[in-house]
Design a protein around this nucleic acid. Structure first.
Lengths: 165, 165
DNA sequence: CACCCTGGCTTGCATTTCACAAGTTGTAGA
DNA sequence: TCTACAACTTGTGAAATGCAAGCCAGGGTG
């Protein structure tokens, strides 16, 4: 028997990897944290195949990291995928990956690098929970990312949908 | 064209995921951080197939996260895989995954959960760079993990091999 | 009111990756 | 000599992934 996804192993890292470690999953969550909610948008941004995107979104909904919420498109009801708190809380994983990637990998061509800014104080900071500039905790509502290869404008992180508490 | 591993995309998260996001890779690095160095040991601990382990180790060496160092086994030379600093620096990713996994997933059967201890002060702490107990930065030499489903004894993190500096 | 468009999928088939098992190499100890 | 061991390599079938096409429902356009 192998340690394939979703088999609840005793190690929390193993369990997290089982869920988050499938191909595309962390990238979907990255984009969901940046405000993407719709099937088409994920497909366009990631270049992922339809069937796999469909599969991953379903799994993320099932695992409670995303939730399907109805929205109105003209006169009919469609669904979009919104972050839950569990999904929003993968942010530290994304931060850690961003730091590691910035430090240890090279882009194909030198575009400006990704930056995280603390909107309350306006400073650029290292991805993480404390602002390098003002020394304070950075709540997700005050965090924005600049991804210069897409746009010079900062993108404020998406808020998770209210769940219970 | 698809965003497959090793294609240097502009986003550092994408690049990190390209390398670290392959199946088994983060688990290999977790165990390497806990002191595993040998092919057999990785195989036994992870239950990974030989050819995939071989492939992943080679890729990690190529990417500079591990390095092959010779050791003597009786009268002959064998090789083991030791962490480089780049490999050791995935620790924050592992911490973030551990925290998320502890919070949002359930083990199959309730074994004691993984704990991180700051050996200088002896306190149990949340995986991360600052000790909950004494409030100080936890350098990796002072960090140990207890994984009660394997052993009650704390395991001090492996040191990376000296590189350059 | 027939036709096309758009978003969100599902289905079918080719390609790639993975799992499992068996074989290889070089040395050493029984 | 025979067996054991660590670290691989090779072969083969199963599963995951990628690509393209099709489907469905409601609305807009002519």
């Amino acid at each position: 028997m192998t340690t394939t996804p979703q088999m609840p192993v005793p190690c929390p890292i193993g369990r997290a990897v089982g869920l988050l470690g499938e191909r595309w999953t962390l990238l979907i969550l990255r984009n969901a944290n940046l405000g993407t909610t719709r099937f088409d948008a994920f497909r366009a941004e990631l270049g992922i195949a339809d069937n796999i995107l469909s599969n991953r979104l379903a799994r993320l909904v099932e695992a409670g990291l995303l939730t399907r919420v109805p929205y109105r498109d003209g006169g009919r009801t469609r669904y979009e995928y919104r972050l839950t708190t569990a999904g929003a809380e993968v942010l530290p994983v994304l931060h850690a990956l961003a730091v590691w990637g910035e430090e240890h990998t090279e882009p194909a061509e030198p575009t400006g690098s990704m930056q995280v800014i603390h909107q309350r104080c306006g400073q650029i900071t290292t991805p993480g929970r404390v602002c390098d500039g003002c020394g304070e905790h950075v709540p997700r509502e005050e965090e924005a990312w600049i991804r210069p290869w897409l746009s010079p404008d900062p993108i404020t992180l998406a808020s998770p949908v209210a769940t219970g508490t």
